[in-house]
Nucleic acid binder design. Sequence first.
DNA 1: GAGCACTGC
Length: 738
Amino acid sequence: MAFWKPGGAKPKQTLPLSAEVDRGAIGDGGRLVVFNRNENLALAAQRERLPIFKCRDAILYLVETRATTVLVGQTGCGKTTQVPQYLVESGWTANGRLVACTQPRRVAAQTIAARVAEEMGVTLGEEVGYAVRFENVSTPGVTRIRFCTDGVLLRELMNDPLLSRYSVVMVDEAHERSLATDLLLGLLKKVQRVRPDLRVIIASATIQAEDFKKFFDQRRIAPKSVATGGVGGGENVADEPSREPGVISVEGRAHSVLIHYLEQPTPDYVQAAVEAALEIHRSEGPGDVLVFLTGEEEIESAVKLLNEEATGHDARKMLGDVGGGNGAGGPIRFTAHPLYAGLSPGVQLEAFRPAPRYTRKIVVASNVAETSVTIEGVVYVVDCCFVKQKAYHPERGMESLLTAEASQASANQRAGRAGRVRPGKCFRLCTEKAFSTMPEMSPPEMIRSDLASTVLQLKALGIDNIMNFEWLSPPPAANMIKALELLYALQALDDDAKLTKPLGMHLAELPLEPQLGKALLVSGELRCVEEMLTVAAYLQVNSVWVSSRGRQKLLDEVKERFAVAEGDAVTALNIHAAYCKAGGVHGGGRARAFAEKNMLSHRALVRAADIRAQLSRHVQRIGLVSSSSGRDSAPLRRAMTAGYFANAATLAPHGGGAEGAAFRSVRGGATLFIHPGSVLFRARPTCVVFAQAVRTKREYMRDVTAIDPEWLPELAPHFYASRQKSGFERPADAGMML
DNA sequence: GAGCACTGC
């Protein structure tokens, strides 16, 4: 294979055990709780064979003696399932206290909880439970270990700012640096000042460990002199742990992966990926192939090329020597499958199904396959070394989703997917030199996101000085100012940047972005609460339509059944009404058939209904009285305007052509287009508000509602008509554009 | 004429 140049380094690095670790001693752990004494002996034996078992005492010693422990656990070491159990066994859940273990993803929280319950021989929801949005499977007073998404724990902090029920919080997958994880870690550090007895465990990959250790090093900071009586354990002062974090590394069980690089850079990585997959198929032994590309378009085009090759190949081979192999012991046939989140569950399943005999499976996937899902049987990985990445541009209040170089950390994670069953190979579609110049890790989400919700949550937690908050990675000042400016415009913050009562507090309570929350709260006065609940819920699901490459015309026709000139929000009302008529969430097969007939995702409809019910409960608690605007869409569109007034655009006089009409944003004057996914794509409303602006190939507005421009100064006079009193910056032309 | 991946009791 002259094409390829073997790399010098293996993707796996291993930290030696930290010198700080005293492997011999273990603190007075308290009562030992023994589970599964008789049953599940096989499971118990399995537990002891996990690599982490050798470090059990060392980990427990660190947790006992340090406020914070950074646990570097390689894939497959068992940290997530075992550490919470070790904590229970050594008494951390005595006196009714809980151990929390957070995950960035719902499914992870659910499946890990199920696994741990099985190992402990208990029923899921009793000693071991989980909490994700819409699902709280736990029993107060009984549950000892609680797996949850980091978002759930953040919400919990709003009701219980000291997390007083918990003795230990373990934050898993912290190296992914998701927005929620970063926020949680910043808040946990704050909680520790007041609650020295709270133990924090941060589970992370190697390259981030030092950052976490530094961040949680509180040796120079005196703890606040707050009595801890009644809060958690904190039996006596002598028990207070060291405020210097401990670090321990546990080796994983993954097999080695040999990395290959290109000798020459490629101008077309989709084509190169296809060629690499075919070359693997021709010359390598058994094992499936996982190809990483950046998005739907690339994936579908690669799958098409592979399928064409497969058909030609089958025709040439004539099934004559099935089972004979490819000369290297590998199969002679292959099948190719796409995998990305936008696919329907049925099509996704194809990628997970084991290949038939004598057949090699080639899965062409987006980033879902990097962390969210695992495909069994993969031995070869092809990595384009690019990724679609979200960025935030505060000056425009706009997000972008553009293809960028992947990070080395991400490429190593992808390569690791080849080493799950046996030693594997990874083929990177870049030169070794190019790889060495790639960023070590991707910038954390916190510094490339819209911070409006984050700032609102911090304010609700009583953290008024946002600039002084200890961020793991401080976001750019411009992002922060933009968020403050928006919250002020929504009247969630007052002139002193303090949370307003009750509006700001209510907005913080709602699990919605602040603009949408505002639209929902305003719907009380505008007498369209029921309609706004529906719209808010539908805006939360990615898309209710099934992804349908090749059936585009059909989807357009189906959309026409529900589409109205008032825009996407009112269209959502029509879909919801039809779905309810077909039985809704309790409609069973009839609702399912309705979804299928109309190319709607049943799963998305159910999720929207769940969210709607949850929002309805919130709204009732806040005290909004139910109301409906019936067939009149104006109140709903006015509510949307009251929330999204900052995202207004007017039709440009001569703009646009075949690509659709051009619009000018009222604030800033940027040229915008209606997204092709919107029902207003071909329409020409004179004035619109939109829920989101995204730059991909051009600058698009999504979730568009047609409005009367007169509503803007009427519903947002403080923004469009009056002079700014406070120091927040406001574009000077905001009022003049109308 | 187009949506990397997640998430909120």
